[in-house]
Nucleic acid binder design. Structure first.
Length: 356
DNA sequence: AACGAGAGCAACCGCGCGAGG
DNA sequence: ACCTCGCGCGGTTGCTCTCGT
């Protein structure tokens, strides 16, 4: 037994909305509001549409102050930052981006932002591999020549490789099977882990945009029902490798400023998900974390061994950063007017001490 | 110019939740 | 306490457009 349909499917129109339908719906809602009943609304105004369809059309397209078109880098930052903390809670993310709808953000994430991350990462992996192959070929050539000088050079090269423990012997490894990796990128957890490593603060000038509203989210019933027991921004473990290890072992108190990745000296002037992505992928010692889709889910034990770690565990390391009230969202009133609803916009104002 | 593949986006679907009876 | 109904959400689908061959 399925649930009863919300409307008579046989007698409702589906597909794209005509300008006439748009006009009818818009003018009615602007004059009278929704009347608190979307299901009854289409009948009331003579539209052969499902109530849900009307609601969606209004929310995503017709209501005032909807912003369409390109997302700014700042908006990218907000989306990524929030995605770290709450995952695919598009409505909450949308609440932090005035004029953007959850559907818009969801589409943008699925079609572009995600690819932006992956594309960059792939390109660099390939470049590094090509470079390593080239280098090894050169080394082999010299080795064939068999002089002593060459062995010294080889030894230096080997040391260099060892300084970069994640790209050992690349030239003898088979090509990374991209297609096999894809599925692992497709789940939210993998992307969230990746984004955690990106630090949440993706550019130098986004102080006003890495926002999250803990009240909004903690009051959101669905949040708890979705299996994330406490909505708390994760510590953004990026910069200091020793602190990272401590944090991963639960030593949060030893994580100064860890809610705000300091990009200034790690990737100054970088943009997200651009140069900083590369920095994260190739230059940071702890790049294992969050790139488990490349290396397997890992974290470090006290003796430095890598052990498995899932999202839930990572989430348990979280704490709430201080709050700066600054944001507001909008709701549609029965009158059709848009009312600003103030909420305590949670800003990552870091660096700050972890909340107890 | 024609065609196919891929990207982007609007819209639909099904489910969980809360309110109200 | 239980049931029904509507809302809101996230995931998915499918249409349209663009670009490459």
């Amino acid at each position: 037994m399925g649930r009863a349909p919300c409307c008579d499917k046989a007698n409702v129109k589906k597909g794209p909305w005509s300008p006439e339908e748009d006009a009818t719906l818009k003018s009615y809602i602007e004059e009278n509001g929704t009347g608190g009943n979307w299901i009854a609304l289409p009948q009331k105004i003579g539209l052969k549409r499902c109530g849900k369809s009307c609601r969606l059309r209004w929310l995503n397209y017709l209501r005032p102050n909807i912003k369409h078109g390109e997302f700014s880098e700042e908006e990218d930052n907000v989306i990524c930052s929030l995605y770290i903390s709450i995952g695919s809670r598009w409505s909450i993310i949308a609440a932090q981006l005035p004029g953007r709808t959850d559907n818009d953000i969801k589409n943008y994430w699925n079609t572009r932002l995600k690819k932006k991350l992956l594309g960059k990462q792939r390109k660099e992996v390939q470049a590094r591999r090509d470079h390593a192959i080239q280098k090894q070929q050169e080394m082999m050539k010299k080795k064939v020549m068999g002089n002593q000088e060459t062995s010294v050079m080889l030894s230096v090269d080997c040391n260099n490789v060892n300084q970069n423990p994640y790209w050992p012997d690349l030239a003898v490894l088979p090509p990374i099977p991209y297609s096999n990796q894809e599925p692992r990128f497709n789940d939210h957890t993998s992307f969230r882990k990746l984004l955690i490593n990106l630090g949440g603060k993706f550019s130098d000038n986004d102080h006003d945009h890495n926002t999250l509203d803990p009240d909004l989210i903690s009051n959101d019933p669905q949040f708890h029902s979705n299996g994330i027991s406490s909505l708390q921004p994760l510590p953004l473990i990026v910069k200091n490798s020793h602190h990272d290890l401590d944090a991963l072992n639960g030593n949060i108190s030893q994580l100064p400023n860890n809610n705000h990745c300091n990009m200034d000296d790690q990737a100054e002037g970088s943009t997200f998900p651009g140069e900083f992505m590369e920095e994260m992928l190739y230059n940071i010692p702890q790049r294992h974390d969050g790139l488990e889709f490349l290396y397997g889910d890992t974290r470090f034990s006290t003796n430095g061994e890598l052990i498995s770690m899932d999202w839930g565990e990572m989430n348990s390391l979280a704490y709430l950063p201080p709050i700066d009230s600054c944001c507001e969202t909008s709701t549609l009133q029965p009158t059709g007017n848009v009312q600003k609803v103030g909420f305590e916009g949670l800003r990552y104002m870091g660096p700050e001490a972890p909340r107890q």
